[in-house]
């Protein structure tokens, strides 16, 4: 019985991983893409400036 449950773990894990990844992808800003726009917004000129 325990062995049988273990057999299904990879499948369940894969489905949960798909749902999570897809959910995260759906929450990213509409126009934004992680690199192109996402970085542009958070890393404005001020963040890029190295200040001492």
């Amino acid at each position: 019985m325990k062995h049988k449950v273990l057999e299904y773990l990879p499948f369940v894990g894969i489905v949960l991983a798909i749902c999570t990844a897809s959910w995260v992808a759906g929450r990213m800003p509409a126009e934004g893409r992680a690199f192109a726009a996402g970085l542009g917004r958070t890393a404005g000129p001020r963040r890029r400036t190295i200040s001492r």
Binding site: S22, W23, V24, A25
Partner: peptide
């Protein structure tokens, strides 16, 4: 519908 598209592509 870019966000639905992106979620479906990743899925």
């Amino acid at each position: 519908r870019p966000r639905l598209a992106r979620a479906a592509k990743v899925g």
